[in-house]
């Protein structure tokens, strides 16, 4: 396809299992829609061509319609549409309905909190071994525009905003969720492959909307722990250790 060979297609394959299923649904709809599109446009073109090339003296057909045709093109699309709707339900439930979240996330609880603000993402991790509380704790660790998550397991986190509405959009993961003032929204995703993934804002939040770029770093759990340890070390830095580089 021209589009995909030029990179005018998805930003890479979906990097989360749920994203893969979203892509499959997309391709299913794309298939159906392409057939309908080609069919109807062709039909339209055909009837116009026939109608425009009628010979002189030939008059238009006199018909007010056809009851059976109406029934066909009501029932068939209805069937297809209901099928599409029902077929999508479970992916949606798994993405958003908390009781359908992967069991792992229910056990782990939220691992960190992402707070959107104009115009950056602030991340708060609980102290190692502690659960995340909704209110900040003295020993919490803070980071900006960089989220470290372990690979290969579903990770749940809390999403909130400091000011106006934002949306957490990770295109490669096919995850999007608005951050609404006054709400704490649990979101989860799973990344099987280590790497860096884009995070940006998808809900208009002011003039700097386009600036809200961050990365999600997926890496093995021990690397995440190392990162958190580094973060803690830096955060507790009191300037006395001579050798410690100033970042």
């Amino acid at each position: 396809m021209i589009a995909s060979s030029n990179g005018w297609w998805f930003p890479g394959d979906a990097m989360s299992p749920l994203g893969k299923r979203i892509d499959e649904l997309f391709y299913l709809i794309l298939g159906i829609v392409t057939v309908v599109f080609v069919g109807t446009q062709f039909a339209l073109g055909y009837v116009i061509w026939k109608g425009a090339t009628k010979k002189d003296g030939e008059s238009a057909e006199f018909s007010h319609g056809s009851h059976s045709l109406e029934l066909i093109w009501t029932i068939v699309p209805a069937f297809v549409l209901v099928f599409i709707a029902l077929y999508q339900m479970d992916v949606w439930a798994e993405f958003r309905v908390q009781s359908y979240y992967p069991e792992q996330t229910q056990e782990d609880g939220p691992k960190f909190e992402v707070t959107a603000r104009q115009f950056e993402w602030r991340i708060r991790y609980p102290e190692a071994g502690q659960p995340l509380k909704n209110q900040p704790e003295p020993q919490d660790l803070y980071a900006v525009n960089e989220i470290h998550v372990p690979t290969g397991r579903p990770v749940k986190f809390n999403l909130r905003t400091d000011d106006v509405q934002h949306a957490f959009f990770a295109p490669e993961l096919r995850v999007k969720q608005d951050a609404v003032a006054g709400l704490i929204i649990p979101v989860w995703f799973e990344i099987p492959v280590a790497g860096e993934y884009q995070l940006l804002c998808a809900e208009l939040c002011g003039w700097g909307h386009y600036k809200m770029r961050a990365i999600i770093v997926a890496e093995p759990q021990d690397k995440v722990n190392e990162y958190l340890a580094r973060l803690k070390e830096d955060q507790d830095f009191d300037g006395v250790v001579k050798d410690a580089e100033e970042e």
Binding site: G19, I22, I29, V33, F37, L44, A202
Partner: peptide
């Protein structure tokens, strides 16, 4: 009519919630 077909069919993508997760606000 022709453009309405395109607009109508593209609507189906975003009517499907899971796909709309990705397409919303794009």
């Amino acid at each position: 009519v022709s453009m309405f077909i395109v607009g109508g069919l593209s609507g189906i993508f975003m009517a499907a919630v899971p796909v709309d997760i990705y397409f919303h606000d794009t």
